[in-house]
Write a protein that binds this DNA or RNA. Structure first.
Lengths: 193, 193, 193, 193
DNA sequence: TATGAATGAGCATTCATTCAT
DNA sequence: GATGAATGAATGCTCATTCAT
């Protein structure tokens, strides 16, 4: 089989797996369901992935890379803090809206699948947190935002980003990503009063 | 056996189950582990609960009642919006800090256990959301806070409350509940600028 | 406890067990059901019987004695063959009609409970067969009935006796024992022609 | 796998199950024993049958069809009553002799497995009875046999057919089916005198 | 390479029996 | 004696994984 075709079947399996995992959760999903969804035989999955665990790991790792790319804050240090977080929030929402099934797997049904995967997932979370915190701290130093506990502010940002998953995931709402990002940034920057 | 002793054993099983479910997740937990953790025989669990599913359901229902009690917003409509949400946030944090394992089960590892339980869980979430939204809308009408999309504001509040689970759950940090609630309320009310 | 009272509780358990075993079969019956039916505690059964198996064994042995007594062919060798088998068939029917639950356990739901019990049950059956055959052979020698394979005739007699269990057990019919015994004897003696 | 091979494995499982059920009874039989007897893995049984209950149900239904075929009384209404029942008795014996394990399951160890199966089994019994009765009544009308209670006569026929199971099942005797059927018919028609 | 029939480790649950009260 | 709460051996069934075709 040509490399391309091989790759395409691997992708097909991953896409099928994402749909089924997202709908039923890892433990409730049987390998056969994935095979059926992918339109292939059960055994074939094992030609491309070592195990169910490795399949979900691979999905999570790959999608996390995609997510970071969508969120990417590279080359934006010259922007104002307000713009940076607006863009970041927007990137987050855009990714979530475009990859609902994936979002559910990555950020919502944080089911404990495996000790190692749990640790990896925590590690990722911490890294994201660190990065966000350094942005916050930088903005405080520059005087762009007022002094406050940077850890707290970081958690709030992450929490707010998480908050908007609900309408996307549970209620399947579509919304204007740019506008919502703008409104949220406003609220965070200028408060409710 | 006296009623009290019977009740206490039921509680013992629930506490053991909470610990194990919280540590390993529902599907990774074997009934025997719960029995061992409770210091009883495997069969004894079935004297008090019909099945593994019913056990986790009962834990979730009971703890949700506790949570709502801790959060209780009754008789507070005469307070200012700022005070109300501060108290609410504080109640949330206090509950989470005092019931870490439970918090993980209720709000963190939202693993798909059962279709019915999933629906119930969504229902609960929606009710909480409704209530919060009505508080937000009331405050807007009274002019306590500025006009904004009430749905968005509600999601932000819920997100912020969710955000602080991370340090509690994942990093096992202790913090001063009242002070953190105050700081968060400040940030939400007056913004970062 | 007085001997009499002790005996009466033992009987009570046996009667309860007979009812439940008869209705649900040995394997489908739980010790608790018997206890409930007897109006006593589950543990109490074990004060009177060593085990579920021993309980059913005891029931079967006791009732078989009763059955043989009802069937008893002692002191009847001076009667004609026709009278003997009529009386025997009548005894069989009378016992079955008066002890329906027991009949079901003894002769109908011949479920394999235990290897030993199975062997015992076969042994009993063979003894009954032997006795019947000797009666048949005697009647042939005396010229009371015509020459035929005595084994075959014996099986027919036993079969006919078994046949009438159906209306008793399955259809709960009541019938005039003496009359039916007479009719059957006639049919066997003089044939259908 | 070819259809034929698949069917043959299904048969292999059924045959193994018949042997084990027949030897140990339904409740005493573990699925693993059947698997071992069939020379396959435990899980394989579930590829062909949904459950232990469904397996035994399928065996009973299939074998009953076989039995009725062996007994078949079609196109025999022009024969004399005597011939009809002789042929019927012969068919019954032939089936039992050729399918001993099956016979034990169908007609001997009438253990209560399941409420539904019990009802089904009674239903079958009643149908057989009805058919036999109509044959008896017809013969009485035609004057082939003397007047008697047709229900009683029917039960006797069925009882006699059941009676000969004993030597087959319990004593593993072989006998000349045609000859025994002839003798039994003689006895029933002309009596013992 | 692709398949799906075969497998058996693993687990929830039942229930006869025990034994502290 | 009487009890019923506690127990754990026993077993039906599932499903990830293997491997012959």
């Amino acid at each position: 089989m040509r490399e391309a075709a091989k790759e395409s079947k691997r992708e097909k399996i991953m896409e099928a797996a994402i749909q089924v995992f997202s709908k039923k959760g890892y433990h409730q999903t049987r390998m056969e369901e994935i095979a059926v969804a992918a339109g292939i035989g059960k055994g074939t999955i094992y030609e491309y992935f070592d195990s169910k665990l490795q399949l979900v790991q691979h999905i999570m790792e790959t999608s996390l890379l995609m997510y970071y790319e969508a969120m990417g804050d590279e080359e934006r240090s010259r922007l104002s803090f307000e713009d940076r977080i607006r863009i970041m929030i927007m990137g987050h929402f855009r990714f979530c809206q475009q990859n609902k099934a994936l979002t559910r797997i990555l950020f919502w049904d944080t089911e404990i699948i495996d000790e190692e995967l749990k640790d990896w997932s925590y590690q990722i979370r911490r890294e994201k947190e660190e990065k966000m915190r350094s942005i916050v701290e930088e903005a405080m130093q520059k005087g762009e935002i007022r002094q406050a506990d940077p850890y707290l502010v970081t958690q709030i940002f992450l929490g707010v980003m998480g908050s908007m998953l609900v309408p996307v995931i549970l209620e399947d709402q579509e919304f204007d990503v740019a506008q919502v990002a703008q409104e949220i940034t406003d609220l965070l920057m200028y408060g409710l009063k």
